[in-house]
Amino acid sequence: MNPAATPPSLHPPAGAELAAEVAGLTKIYGSGNTEVVAVRDASFGVARGEVVALLGPSGSGKSTLLAAVGLINPPTAGRVAVAGQAVMDGPHALVELRAFCRHHLGFVFQKANLIPFLTARQNVQVALEINDVAPRTARDRAGELLAYLGLGDRLHNLPFMLSGGQQQRVAIARALANRPDLILADEPTAALDGRLGRQVMELFRRVAHEQRAGVVVVTHDHRALDLCDRILEMEDGILRAHQPAPRAA
Protein backbone atom coordinates (compact mmCIF):
# COMPACT_ATOMS: atom_id res chain seq x y z
CA MET A 1 0.00 0.00 0.00
CA ASN A 2 1.66 3.14 -1.12
CA PRO A 3 0.24 6.23 0.56
CA ALA A 4 0.21 7.99 -2.74
CA ALA A 5 -2.09 5.34 -4.13
CA THR A 6 -5.01 6.15 -1.84
CA PRO A 7 -6.41 9.62 -1.52
CA PRO A 8 -5.36 11.24 1.73
CA SER A 9 -7.97 10.82 4.43
CA LEU A 10 -8.30 11.17 8.23
CA HIS A 11 -10.25 7.92 8.32
CA PRO A 12 -9.60 4.44 7.01
CA PRO A 13 -11.72 3.19 4.14
CA ALA A 14 -15.35 2.64 5.08
CA GLY A 15 -16.09 -0.84 6.40
CA ALA A 16 -12.67 -1.36 7.96
CA GLU A 17 -12.68 -2.65 11.52
CA LEU A 18 -11.46 0.18 13.76
CA ALA A 19 -8.68 -0.14 16.30
CA ALA A 20 -9.28 3.41 17.50
CA GLU A 21 -11.53 6.31 16.72
CA VAL A 22 -11.22 9.90 17.87
CA ALA A 23 -13.92 12.54 17.45
CA GLY A 24 -13.65 16.26 18.13
CA LEU A 25 -10.68 15.89 20.46
CA THR A 26 -9.44 19.15 22.00
CA LYS A 27 -6.72 19.49 24.59
CA ILE A 28 -6.12 22.77 26.35
CA TYR A 29 -3.20 23.18 28.76
CA GLY A 30 -3.38 25.81 31.48
CA SER A 31 -5.96 28.55 31.65
CA GLY A 32 -6.30 32.29 31.27
CA ASN A 33 -3.17 34.00 30.00
CA THR A 34 -1.13 30.82 29.94
CA GLU A 35 -3.73 28.81 28.05
CA VAL A 36 -2.31 26.68 25.24
CA VAL A 37 -4.60 24.88 22.84
CA ALA A 38 -2.32 21.95 22.03
CA VAL A 39 -4.89 20.00 20.00
CA ARG A 40 -7.95 21.59 18.42
CA ASP A 41 -10.97 19.54 17.40
CA ALA A 42 -9.07 16.55 16.02
CA SER A 43 -10.95 13.61 14.53
CA PHE A 44 -9.41 10.52 12.98
CA GLY A 45 -9.57 6.75 12.92
CA VAL A 46 -7.12 3.86 12.75
CA ALA A 47 -8.11 0.50 11.35
CA ARG A 48 -6.84 -2.81 12.59
CA GLY A 49 -3.83 -3.89 10.55
CA GLU A 50 -3.02 -0.33 9.60
CA VAL A 51 0.09 1.72 10.35
CA VAL A 52 -0.60 5.46 10.50
CA ALA A 53 2.22 7.97 10.66
CA LEU A 54 1.75 11.28 12.45
CA LEU A 55 3.99 14.09 11.23
CA GLY A 56 4.35 17.69 12.22
CA PRO A 57 6.74 20.33 13.48
CA SER A 58 7.88 20.44 17.06
CA GLY A 59 5.26 21.75 19.42
CA SER A 60 2.42 21.11 17.00
CA GLY A 61 0.62 18.76 19.45
CA LYS A 62 1.53 15.27 18.22
CA SER A 63 2.55 13.92 21.61
CA THR A 64 -0.47 15.52 23.21
CA LEU A 65 -2.82 13.86 20.74
CA LEU A 66 -1.13 10.49 21.20
CA ALA A 67 -1.28 10.76 24.99
CA ALA A 68 -4.98 11.60 24.80
CA VAL A 69 -5.70 8.61 22.57
CA GLY A 70 -3.53 6.46 24.82
CA LEU A 71 -5.54 7.50 27.89
CA ILE A 72 -2.41 8.88 29.51
CA ASN A 73 -3.53 12.48 29.42
CA PRO A 74 -7.28 13.07 29.40
CA PRO A 75 -8.55 15.42 26.68
CA THR A 76 -10.40 18.63 27.51
CA ALA A 77 -13.18 17.68 25.12
CA GLY A 78 -13.92 15.02 22.53
CA ARG A 79 -14.47 11.30 22.48
CA VAL A 80 -12.06 8.40 22.20
CA ALA A 81 -13.00 4.82 21.39
CA VAL A 82 -10.51 1.95 21.35
CA ALA A 83 -11.24 -1.53 20.00
CA GLY A 84 -14.86 -0.57 19.51
CA GLN A 85 -15.32 0.56 23.08
CA ALA A 86 -15.96 4.17 24.10
CA VAL A 87 -13.32 4.98 26.68
CA MET A 88 -13.16 8.76 27.10
CA ASP A 89 -15.85 11.38 26.96
CA GLY A 90 -14.02 14.64 27.41
CA PRO A 91 -11.96 14.39 30.57
CA HIS A 92 -14.17 11.61 31.91
CA ALA A 93 -13.07 8.01 31.73
CA LEU A 94 -15.81 5.57 30.80
CA VAL A 95 -13.81 2.51 31.77
CA GLU A 96 -11.22 1.59 34.39
CA LEU A 97 -8.23 3.08 32.59
CA ARG A 98 -5.43 1.04 34.14
CA ALA A 99 -7.18 -2.23 33.32
CA PHE A 100 -8.07 -0.99 29.85
CA CYS A 101 -4.44 -0.03 29.14
CA ARG A 102 -3.33 -3.42 30.34
CA HIS A 103 -5.57 -5.24 27.88
CA HIS A 104 -5.74 -3.04 24.81
CA LEU A 105 -2.85 -0.60 24.55
CA GLY A 106 0.86 -0.73 23.92
CA PHE A 107 3.19 2.26 24.19
CA VAL A 108 6.61 2.97 22.79
CA PHE A 109 8.41 6.22 23.46
CA GLN A 110 11.52 7.95 22.23
CA LYS A 111 13.27 6.75 25.36
CA ALA A 112 12.99 3.06 26.10
CA ASN A 113 11.98 3.70 29.74
CA LEU A 114 13.03 0.23 30.76
CA ILE A 115 12.99 -0.62 34.44
CA PRO A 116 16.69 -0.44 35.31
CA PHE A 117 16.73 -3.22 37.88
CA LEU A 118 15.10 -5.79 35.61
CA THR A 119 16.84 -7.74 32.88
CA ALA A 120 15.71 -7.45 29.28
CA ARG A 121 13.52 -10.50 29.63
CA GLN A 122 12.10 -9.44 32.98
CA ASN A 123 11.17 -6.06 31.51
CA VAL A 124 8.93 -7.86 29.04
CA GLN A 125 7.86 -10.50 31.52
CA VAL A 126 6.59 -7.89 33.97
CA ALA A 127 4.13 -6.57 31.41
CA LEU A 128 2.77 -10.08 30.91
CA GLU A 129 2.56 -10.81 34.63
CA ILE A 130 0.74 -7.55 35.19
CA ASN A 131 -1.79 -8.94 32.74
CA ASP A 132 -2.18 -12.07 34.87
CA VAL A 133 -0.08 -14.38 32.73
CA ALA A 134 1.47 -17.09 34.91
CA PRO A 135 5.14 -16.31 35.71
CA ARG A 136 6.56 -19.35 33.91
CA THR A 137 4.51 -18.77 30.77
CA ALA A 138 5.32 -15.07 30.93
CA ARG A 139 9.02 -15.82 31.09
CA ASP A 140 8.89 -18.13 28.11
CA ARG A 141 6.77 -15.75 26.06
CA ALA A 142 9.09 -12.84 26.91
CA GLY A 143 12.07 -14.90 25.81
CA GLU A 144 10.43 -15.84 22.53
CA LEU A 145 9.39 -12.28 21.81
CA LEU A 146 12.89 -10.95 22.43
CA ALA A 147 14.38 -13.68 20.29
CA TYR A 148 11.97 -12.67 17.56
CA LEU A 149 13.32 -9.12 17.86
CA GLY A 150 16.88 -10.37 17.59
CA LEU A 151 17.75 -10.15 21.27
CA GLY A 152 17.83 -13.86 22.02
CA ASP A 153 21.35 -13.59 23.38
CA ARG A 154 20.61 -10.56 25.54
CA LEU A 155 17.85 -11.91 27.74
CA HIS A 156 19.80 -11.61 30.96
CA ASN A 157 21.33 -8.23 30.40
CA LEU A 158 20.28 -5.27 32.49
CA PRO A 159 19.19 -2.25 30.45
CA PHE A 160 22.44 -0.35 31.01
CA MET A 161 24.32 -3.15 29.27
CA LEU A 162 22.25 -2.75 26.12
CA SER A 163 22.76 -0.28 23.29
CA GLY A 164 20.09 2.36 22.65
CA GLY A 165 18.68 0.36 19.75
CA GLN A 166 18.60 -2.85 21.77
CA GLN A 167 16.86 -1.07 24.63
CA GLN A 168 14.28 0.29 22.22
CA ARG A 169 13.61 -3.19 20.88
CA VAL A 170 13.06 -4.44 24.43
CA ALA A 171 10.61 -1.58 24.92
CA ILE A 172 8.82 -2.61 21.74
CA ALA A 173 8.69 -6.20 22.89
CA ARG A 174 7.15 -4.99 26.12
CA ALA A 175 4.54 -2.97 24.20
CA LEU A 176 3.68 -5.96 22.04
CA ALA A 177 3.72 -8.55 24.79
CA ASN A 178 0.03 -8.44 25.58
CA ARG A 179 -1.05 -8.36 21.92
CA PRO A 180 -2.65 -4.93 22.19
CA ASP A 181 -5.34 -3.69 19.81
CA LEU A 182 -3.68 -0.32 19.51
CA ILE A 183 0.02 0.50 19.55
CA LEU A 184 1.01 4.11 20.10
CA ALA A 185 4.61 5.03 19.38
CA ASP A 186 6.01 8.51 20.00
CA GLU A 187 9.19 8.95 17.96
CA PRO A 188 10.32 5.38 18.62
CA THR A 189 13.09 5.58 16.07
CA ALA A 190 14.55 8.94 17.05
CA ALA A 191 17.36 7.31 18.99
CA LEU A 192 18.08 4.76 16.28
CA ASP A 193 20.10 4.98 13.11
CA GLY A 194 18.34 4.83 9.75
CA ARG A 195 18.68 1.09 9.25
CA LEU A 196 17.46 0.23 12.74
CA GLY A 197 14.69 2.82 12.47
CA ARG A 198 13.47 1.17 9.36
CA GLN A 199 13.63 -2.22 11.02
CA VAL A 200 11.42 -0.94 13.80
CA MET A 201 8.90 0.41 11.34
CA GLU A 202 8.91 -2.90 9.49
CA LEU A 203 8.30 -4.60 12.78
CA PHE A 204 5.27 -2.42 13.47
CA ARG A 205 3.98 -3.21 10.07
CA ARG A 206 4.36 -6.90 10.60
CA VAL A 207 2.70 -6.76 14.03
CA ALA A 208 -0.16 -4.69 12.63
CA HIS A 209 -0.76 -7.30 9.98
CA GLU A 210 -0.16 -10.42 12.00
CA GLN A 211 -1.91 -9.36 15.19
CA ARG A 212 -4.59 -7.20 13.58
CA ALA A 213 -3.51 -4.19 15.63
CA GLY A 214 -3.74 -0.52 14.73
CA VAL A 215 -0.47 1.40 14.95
CA VAL A 216 0.01 5.16 15.25
CA VAL A 217 3.62 6.31 14.95
CA VAL A 218 4.79 9.87 15.53
CA THR A 219 7.95 10.30 13.51
CA HIS A 220 10.27 12.84 12.03
CA ASP A 221 11.95 10.22 9.92
CA HIS A 222 10.60 10.61 6.43
CA ARG A 223 12.71 7.78 5.02
CA ALA A 224 10.44 5.14 6.53
CA LEU A 225 7.14 6.70 5.53
CA ASP A 226 6.77 4.28 2.61
CA LEU A 227 6.12 1.59 5.24
CA CYS A 228 3.04 3.43 6.51
CA ASP A 229 -0.47 3.00 5.17
CA ARG A 230 -1.58 6.52 5.84
CA ILE A 231 0.05 9.76 6.91
CA LEU A 232 -1.56 12.38 9.13
CA GLU A 233 -0.07 15.73 9.86
CA MET A 234 -0.40 18.23 12.68
CA GLU A 235 0.25 21.88 12.63
CA ASP A 236 -0.55 24.25 15.48
CA GLY A 237 -2.87 21.72 17.02
CA ILE A 238 -4.84 21.12 13.82
CA LEU A 239 -4.88 17.58 12.45
CA ARG A 240 -5.26 16.89 8.78
CA ALA A 241 -4.49 14.24 6.21
CA HIS A 242 -1.06 14.52 4.63
CA GLN A 243 -0.86 15.72 1.05
CA PRO A 244 2.19 13.99 -0.35
CA ALA A 245 4.48 16.38 -2.14
CA PRO A 246 4.59 15.56 -5.82
CA ARG A 247 7.67 13.49 -6.36
CA ALA A 248 10.37 15.23 -8.25
CA ALA A 249 10.81 12.63 -10.96
Binding site: R98, A99, C101, R102, I115, I130, R174
Partner: peptide
Protein backbone atom coordinates in the same frame (compact mmCIF):
# COMPACT_ATOMS: atom_id res chain seq x y z
CA UNK B 1 9.13 7.32 40.44
CA UNK B 2 9.88 6.94 36.74
CA UNK B 3 9.66 3.16 36.90
CA UNK B 4 6.45 3.36 38.85
CA UNK B 5 4.98 5.70 36.23
CA UNK B 6 6.01 3.19 33.56
CA UNK B 7 4.45 0.33 35.50
CA UNK B 8 1.22 2.28 35.74
CA UNK B 9 1.40 3.03 32.04
CA UNK B 10 1.56 -0.64 31.17
CA UNK B 11 -1.43 -1.12 33.43
CA UNK B 12 0.02 -2.35 36.72
CA UNK B 13 -2.58 -2.50 39.45
CA UNK B 14 -2.04 -0.41 42.54
CA UNK B 15 -1.39 -3.52 44.57
CA UNK B 16 1.67 -4.29 42.43
Amino acid sequence: AHDIAMLKLIGARNRV
